[in-house]
Design a protein around this nucleic acid. Structure first.
Lengths: 344, 344
DNA sequence: GTGATCGTTTGCATCGATGCAAGGTCGCGA
DNA sequence: TCGCGACCTTGCATCGATGCAAACGATCAC
């Protein structure tokens, strides 16, 4: 049973190949009878489009590449799932690439390693500096996902990190926390944004500067969260009364370290994170977090890709403006940050 | 800056297109000088292979499709990551498809929805019955991943589920547990295998049948684990002294339910799962589990795909034998199942 | 009746690379 | 010197679909 081509269908239906193509692609001017006959042949022979051939000829493949640092990190897995779902609604297939947080791998993406195959690229970068993106100046549709801002040339979709961080910390402060430690690193683009939100919230609440502390971590995963908090607990300084983790993975590690040391959460230390990954509802205690609307992010990102595609096809005159799309998020309050009201 | 084709490179280097192709593909009989000159042109013009065109002509695309039910489930995310890594080592790109556990979606995979684009398919199915796979009889390289066994026609790669379950339950029994509840469903293929291992271990340990109990759950995720254990705790029967969850997601849900009800783990109830997903090292308390060797699975699966590819190209006489590859696993013991030795 | 118009169908060239097999060059043994 | 094989290079057809524009027939207005 060899592959069925349009030619085979055409012969079977007694029409030209072009007509079969017209039927398949839903071209308007095909008589009902012809359409019906061709359709019957299509079904009977079990025709399946060769996407490669179509892609070669038409220049559009129906693929979109999604590049994330670590597919196994829950946040990115969720994001990927959302993108795949949104893409499926548009009849688009997703090509998932994992850069492993490797600088070289990220550069390769920008240099168009996937250009021929994918109609566009959704790129969630962590190492590539903004300057590199603008310098490389990719000539294919590209949308940056999440936190990493790359300046004017390409749109970015994600939550407003400053606002998100501020929201969490405001909540912690409202719970009576004063000495709030930030767990993260303000070296990266999004790290410094979250640090900024942290500072804004504390400063606005009139918390004395001496109580501010950003505990640096290299990677935002569970292990580093665990280590950082262990360090903190072993240290000689006064203990914080709250931990604001730059993401939930760090918070999960933090919770484990606190649990292992017998520190009660939230009574002694409140904890909150950002991302609201699924496991955050199952931690001990359940974790307060910021829930981004991943479906909205995926949806918007694909739309922006589409628009870029049309722009570069048609009127190239319209300047690709840098749209920084801030998608909605909400604060999800769970036990980890719920402190009893202070004694009256 | 339009796309650079082989033709452009050929003109630039003063050779034929075919020679450029020979250089790119590493054909032996190319003189060093020619190769060097062409190579220089390649670099200078920044040539990038058009994978679509090559795929169309040669029939091989360099893509492998990976179909999983839920990419956002940690186990599958880890698996996908492992496959992507292993594929990258072979210069293969992975196309990730998410079936959402939908029966129709799984059927579509088997009917070759990706055949043209991918050289082969790695399929982690959960709903499609084995009979369907053999009935549909896909005519493309296919390797089943994980638990689902589909009979003789296609190889399957994964751990031995019976042995894995037996190992966990043996461990629980060795910790002194007698009334071990299994959390899962023995309707599915791999469910019944894990149930079988559970029975074997209890029976071999001489545990009385009255103490056996399989608590059914629809989907193997955190929420259902939580609900099932909540039901269990609300019930009137005697409490178990251990819970064996068919996977870690269920175990995580179970731990949360126990925590919420104030049941101490492992003192009152020991808990263990299968998969050893990353979060299992961070639960409260850390979860005992079975760690499959995902890298080995990915590696082996790709090798088997390769072999099928060659078989169907060359001598098709060799019968595609059903190799059920049992990859190694190990028991990872953590606090959740460590009970104090019984009083002397 | 005739030309214009619309709707429908078709043929041919083409996307960019590789399979195939022939053509050319060179060196070497007879 | 000729013939032969080894090595290198090339031209042409081709993979399967779509872009383009022409051809065809029927309908319609004049």
């Amino acid at each position: 049973m060899a592959r069925v081509r349009m030619r085979d269908v055409a012969e079977h239906a007694g029409v030209s190949v072009r007509t079969v193509s017209n039927v398949v692609s839903g071209y308007r001017h095909v008589s009902p009878q012809t359409r019906a006959r061709v359709q019957r042949s299509l079904d009977e022979l079990g025709y399946k489009m060769d996407y490669l051939a179509r892609g070669l000829r038409s220049g559009r493949t129906g693929f979109v590449a999604l590049a994330v640092p670590f597919l196994a990190e829950p946040y990115f897995a969720e994001l990927a799932q959302a993108v795949i779902k949104a893409a499926a609604r548009r009849g688009i297939t997703v090509l998932v690439e994992s850069t492993a947080g490797d600088h070289e791998a990220e550069r390769r993406i920008l240099e168009g390693g996937l250009t021929n195959v994918a109609d566009g690229v959704l790129f969630s970068a962590i190492t590539v500096p903004a300057a590199d993106v603008t310098a490389t100046a990719p000539d294919f549709p590209l949308v940056m996902l999440g936190e990493h801002d790359v300046g004017d040339r390409f749109p970015r979709v994600g939550i407003d990190n400053v606002a998100a961080a501020r929201t969490v910390v405001e909540h912690l402060v409202a719970q009576g926390c004063r000495r709030v430690v930030a767990l993260g690193r303000n070296g990266s683009e999004n790290g410094s944004q979250r640090a900024e939100g942290y500072r804004q919230a504390l400063s606005a609440a009139g918390v004395r500067r001496v109580n501010w502390l950003v505990e640096p971590v290299e990677d935002w995963n569970r292990a580093q969260g665990y280590e950082a908090v262990s360090r903190l607990l072993e240290g000689s300084g006064p203990l914080p009364d709250a931990i604001f983790a730059f993401n939930d993975a760090l918070a999960v590690g933090a919770l484990r370290a606190l649990d292992a040391s017998g520190v009660r959460v939230p009574d002694e230390i409140a904890v909150a994170g950002i991302d609201d990954v699924p496991e955050s509802a199952y931690t001990h205690p359940p974790l307060t977090s910021i829930a981004p609307d991943l479906d909205a992010i995926a949806e918007r990102a694909l739309t922006l890709l589409d628009e870029q595609g049309r722009v570069s096809d048609g009127q190239d005159t319209a300047p690709r403006s840098a749209r920084r799309e801030a998608t909605p998020f909400r604060l999800v309050v769970r036990e980890s940050s719920l402190r009893p009201p202070p004694a009256p």
